[in-house]
């Protein structure tokens, strides 16, 4: 039970970062922290008490492995997170060159 509550706290820290911070880079870091917490939650779902790593060896027994399906899901989710973070950072660099600042209160040329 305790690891799941810690995951929730990490998720809320990331959400706080997105909502209240005013620097573009800090918003991106908040999104990255939220991503890590969702990946951690998905891995903890597949845990079996007393299980070993799911590698096929000669003396294998099905009940002693942890669940390998969430591990495959997490690999995909990490790659997608990498692509999203790289794109956000490239946008932030271009925004800095056009506006001269990282502050989101000054980047507001679209109104209405």
């Amino acid at each position: 039970m305790i690891p799941f509550i810690l995951c929730l706290i990490l998720f809320l820290i990331g959400l706080y970062g997105i909502i209240t911070q005013k620097n573009l880079i800090k918003i991106i870091i908040g999104l990255a922290i939220m991503e890590y917490s969702v990946n951690l939650f998905l891995i903890m779902i597949g845990y079996v008490d007393g299980g070993t790593a799911p590698i096929f060896a000669e003396k294998f027994h099905i009940g002693s492995y942890v669940d390998p399906l969430p591990q495959a899901m997490i690999l995909t989710a990490i790659v997608i997170g990498l692509a999203t973070t790289a794109l956000l950072l490239a946008m932030a660099i271009r925004l800095y060159r056009k506006y001269g600042t990282f502050d989101i209160r000054k980047i507001n040329s679209l109104k209405g």
Binding site: M91, I107, L110
Partner: peptide, 11 residues
């Protein structure tokens, strides 16, 4: 304005 709109959309 295109970069700013895309950043909001991405977040």
């Amino acid at each position: 304005h295109q970069l700013e709109a895309s950043f909001k959309y991405q977040v």
